[in-house]
């Protein structure tokens, strides 16, 4: 009898069905489609290292670019890459990835190109730091010239600054031109 009451109640109420175009919204914390922000990525490779099913990998075009590759068909949407990304370049968006007709090919694969930049000091191609990081490091713009340095040159500049701090007043600073090995 309780069942009869339930089903007759259902009959009197409108149906709870949602039309295909009006599906329930996904919770904001849902780990759906993976997004990559090439301008924040430093190509450190942490995401490829922590990815359990090996859905992420990097390829290089030496001197020109580094590519971040992601194969949705191998992802288990665990979110480890997002957690471990030091520059927050990877975000798991709540949007549900749509179904696709193409086979393991184009639709299921994402590629994000990170362009290398030549170092303003030594000319070596390198992955630039994210703009936000650079703003945090060189906020005042005092040493604006260091912005375009490659990691090696940044290291050289930092040590040169350190050395100059020890020099007495009026002494000549360290000679410009000490090149790092490549």
């Amino acid at each position: 009898m309780a069942m009869l009451k339930t089903i007759l109640g259902n009959l009197l109420r409108p149906s709870r069905t949602r039309a295909p175009a009006d599906m329930p919204v996904v919770p904001p914390t849902y780990r759906g489609a993976l997004g990559h922000d090439a301008s924040r990525c430093t190509a450190c490779g942490t995401c490829a290292f922590v990815c359990a099913p090996k859905a992420i990998h990097f390829t290089q075009d030496p001197g020109v670019s580094v590519s971040w590759h992601f194969f949705i068909g191998q992802c288990s949407f665990c979110g480890l890459c997002e957690q471990n990304c030091p520059t927050q370049a990877i975000h798991l968006r709540s949007a549900v990835p749509g179904s696709m007709n193409s086979a393991g090919g184009d639709g299921l694969r994402l590629e994000s190109l990170i362009h290398l930049q030549p170092c303003t000091r030594c000319g070596a191609a390198h992955v630039p730091l994210p703009a936000a990081t650079m703003d945090a490091l060189w906020a005042a713009g005092a040493e604006e010239v260091e912005r375009g340095y490659c990691p090696e040159c940044r290291r050289w500049a930092a040590s040169a600054r350190l050395r100059n701090a020890f020099l007495p007043e009026g002494a000549t600073p360290a000679a410009e031109g000490g090149r790092h090995d490549r």
């Binding site: 089903i7 007759l8 259902n10 009959l11 109420r13 149906s15 709870r16 069905t17």
Partner: peptide, 11 residues
Amino acid sequence: KLVARLQGRQG
């Protein structure tokens, strides 16, 4: 349709 409506579905 009736089964669906009794179950609260669209049918």
